[in-house]
Amino acid sequence: MTVRRFNILLALPLGAIVAAFFLLPMGILFLQSFVTRQDTSTYFAILTTPRYLSSLLATLALAIVTTLLTLALSTTVGLLLARQRFPGRSVLIALMTFPLAFPGVVVGFMVILLAGRQGLVGEITRMVTGDKIVFAYSMTGLLVGYLYFSIPRVLLTVMAAAEKLDPALEDAARSLGASPVHVLADVVLPALKPAFIASGAICFATAMGAFGTAFTLATKIDVLPMVIYTEFTLNANVAMAAALSIFLGAITWVALTLARTFGGTGVAAAG
């Protein structure tokens, strides 16, 4: 058997699966997005119908805020954990990465326990001020949930990058008279830029496409994935659901591809 034939044989199962269950369905999804009863194209409708447009903008805003907050928090934590050695450090890091494996629904439940009607924040605020603060079922609750599953992922990337950083760079900056603030701003953060771009893009794409958390918290929050879901299941508007899916997929794909171009390798993931 020639090497060529052997290789084709090895790649065949995956090729068949991908062709039958991914390429073909995605092609059908794309075609379906044009099959509409309205006069205008579905894609045009996304940008002109207030309901779709506002949900698109809200989702974008939510994803961007999630990304920026996650980057800020994870970098602060990541730089500390990457440099400091203390007992239990590796266990702590391991524990902090667990939420990576939690599905969106579980993360939604975590937000309910934190800020829901029977949540911790509500109990504490009721005891302190007499007023029960409940924000789990709002955009804020969604943001908290997205932070919950984004922080661990960005944290890992930032830590990995920070650990690869040559400590001599910082020593060199200090030998030239740079203060700790300057070392951070002029040496450390610029060196971490590829990690920021890579993990930021993953964070953004995940936040754009996340469904489970919003689903658990409320059906009232109109983020794009929820709109797709309601269009398909409640309104049976297959064309619009398909078009929105393609639209959303294109946004996340572009974000990840841009990040891969400018942020080096190691970019992927969204769920």
Partner: peptide
């Protein structure tokens, strides 16, 4: 690609 495209879209497809 299934990592970059939201699961909802793939499921719909």
């Amino acid at each position: 690609l299934p990592l970059a495209i939201p699961g909802l879209a793939i499921a719909l497809a």
